[in-house]
């Protein structure tokens, strides 16, 4: 299967690989996927509590090139966004940006889930209620 240039670029030069302090109050962590399924994504955001802006984002991903590229792209998009805007990131935007083929759509869904997971983790840590999301269907 041929990968798009953008997938190859993110795979070869992934943006924002790393780990933020998950015990820190202003860091939210989303861990999605499962080793048995061949994809595990961990996405973390650091939030400026006074402005609600995402100041930093990091990821680590176990998975195929498309999964790595989806999470790398997600961290790029998250940086500098408000939490509210981050919630609007849709998996199909990732699919479009990376030209993912149909069998790889689940990678983008995973990235969207990881974003939501990170945001909810941050919200709960800071005394807010977790947002209830509809179950993702494509897996």
């Amino acid at each position: 299967m041929a990968y798009s240039d953008k997938v190859i670029d993110h795979y070869s030069n992934p943006k924002n690989v790393g780990t933020l302090d998950k015990s820190s109050k202003n860091v939210g962590t989303g861990l999605v996927g499962a080793p048995e399924c061949g994809d595990v994504m961990r996405l973390q955001i650091e939030v400026d509590e006074s402005t609600g802006m995402i100041t930093d984002a990091k990821f680590k991903t176990f998975g195929c090139g498309s999964a790595i590229a989806s999470s790398s792209l997600a961290t790029e998009w998250l940086k500098g966004k408000s939490i509210d805007d981050a919630l609007k990131i849709d998996n199909m935007a990732i699919v479009e940006e990376l030209s993912l083929p149909p069998v790889k759509i689940h990678c983008s869904v995973l990235a969207e889930d990881a974003i939501k997971g990170a945001i909810n983790d941050y919200r709960v840590k800071n005394g807010m209620e977790a947002i209830k999301f509809e179950e993702s269907v494509v897996h």
Partner: peptide
């Protein structure tokens, strides 16, 4: 492996089997 969350957990001594993975 530098990019793998599983590798990081393994290195931290976390037993991956004890983690409740999200159903996918």
């Amino acid at each position: 492996r530098e990019m793998s969350p599983l590798w990081e957990m393994y290195k931290e001594g976390i037993d991956l089997n004890t983690i409740e993975w999200a159903a996918h």
